[in-house]
Nucleic acid binder design. Structure first.
Lengths: 263, 263
DNA sequence: AACCATTGTTACGCATATAAAACAACAAGG
DNA sequence: CCTTGTTGTTTTATATGCGTAACAATGGTT
């Protein structure tokens, strides 16, 4: 509700652009359509400014005016941007066949995600054929410290980095009890770091095995997991064969990264 | 190469925002990373302006500076935007289970797309389990008049609208020969309109059956198709059972639309 | 090394984008 | 019907974002 009001007053910021972006950010699953006045109220801007901003965004296809109303919602153009992002990431291109393969040999859903701010952001999913797909779509987010992939990545980071990052950060998340304090998180990561992989149930009824991915220079850049109902066969021995398969897939992805000299 | 230089000089445009958006648009599969100077040259802007714009976009997570270099590429934030868009579209939510079902009963890949400008934009895909996935990813584009879904949509639009839209538009597309002139397109649409669905091979070796989707008010809002290698069993009778299944799926989607009173 | 070219970054004055206020168009309500 | 309170849109004077030009920092070339 109250995110620390961060007025970045560097004179290098382009205010018009800043407003446009935060305006786009208002539209989410919960609030798919807004009017000028609503936006103005939300962003604490004059209607005139919002008018011009919306006018610009609409012209560029990032916003769409709903028929016979003065409500606006996100336009198709924003999708193209996301598509371009995914396809500019060799990470996804490299991981795709391997995660598809892992899905096929295990029969469970596999995912790839990276850390953005305090979230993990899913950038690929190979959904299991058998069961109805989970809700971990590409583009969705989850607090990093309560997701298997997030923990896999955090565990590979220097402890000092993690400590600084989470200093004063409230770890409490709805529906997740596990690490409620930083000390608990540190302990989780310590155990998991020693073991070399993450395994367990992060959502009740769902088991996951996650491992971090490194680029050719050794930097942790993402993580993958196998995650599905704990009742299905392959999830029975998450500490056995399944773990080995995930580790193998991860190191294969890491190995293939960075061999295509980009740019 | 030379898109008609459209200077929209309405005084309502926010220049800073306009620049930021077109800057983001530069990054694609072909050009995943750029330096300030490259961008400046491309957009014909001073480096100072580009500096400020990039500075802003980076701060907001829409751009990322590559390690130990002054190259920038798209940041994860753009993905979230696309995700929000998809989930604010009841179209996708409604179509998902039906297209998944259609994929399962046919064994072929199914897609949903809508028209944006002169392109079809894919907004959902249920990939076939058997074969390696096609390259029609969510967020990708194709000239509308050479895609099955695009033609399905265009055929449902009033002919006058299509005529005006494509007046003076060059229909020639690489690797596609079919409708090279507007008259040819008109003839295609006429035939397909009479038949009530689109079927055929738009890419060599691939067969497709497409039908338009209407919202509760009768407006054409999107299209769906079944599209896969023409050699696989279910594609043998695209004018028979397969066509019926697609038509049924489409009308089911259309029926379910607009019953969730939004806003 | 000294050169030159080319980069990212900072400073500053003028053109211009913007916030406040006026306007128009509508709806509700007494 | 005339208020009163909403909207979205237009205007305009002034605060400010922008291009020019200088600066700094790098890297290649002889």
């Amino acid at each position: 509700m109250d995110k620390t009001s961060e007025d970045v007053n560097s004179s290098y910021m382009v205010p018009g652009l800043l407003r446009g972006l935060s305006l786009l950010g208002l539209f989410g699953k919960d609030r798919p359509a807004m009017r000028l006045t609503d936006i103005a109220k939300e962003l604490k801007l004059s209607r005139a400014t919002v008018f011009r901003t919306v006018y610009t965004l609409e012209h560029e296809g990032y916003l769409v005016r709903l028929k016979d109303s003065n409500y606006y919602s996100l336009g198709p153009r924003v999708l193209t941007l996301g598509f371009d992002y995914l396809h500019s990431q060799e990470l996804v291109e490299v991981a795709r066949p391997i995660l598809d393969g892992l899905r096929d040999t295990t029969g469970a859903s596999t995912h790839m995600a990276l850390i953005d701010d305090f979230d993990v952001l899913y950038i690929y999913r190979a959904a299991s054929h058998q069961r109805l797909s989970s809700n971990r779509h590409v583009g969705s987010r989850l607090p990093a410290h309560v997701s298997s992939i997030g923990r896999a990545i955090l565990a590979e980071l220097p402890e000092s980095v993690v400590a600084e990052k989470y200093a004063g950060y409230d770890l409490r998340v709805e529906n997740y009890t596990e690490p409620a304090t930083f000390d608990e998180l540190k302990e989780c990561l310590r155990v998991e770091r020693e073991r070399g992989y993450i395994a367990g149930s992060f959502v009740s009824g769902i088991s996951s095995v996650a491992v971090a991915i490194r680029d050719s220079e050794g930097n942790v850049v993402a993580g993958i997991n196998v995650s599905d109902y704990e009742s299905i066969p392959c999830m029975k021995d998450i500490h056995g064969k399944l773990k080995d398969k995930v580790l193998a897939a991860a190191s294969e992805i890491s190995r293939r990264l960075g061999h295509t000299s980009s740019l």
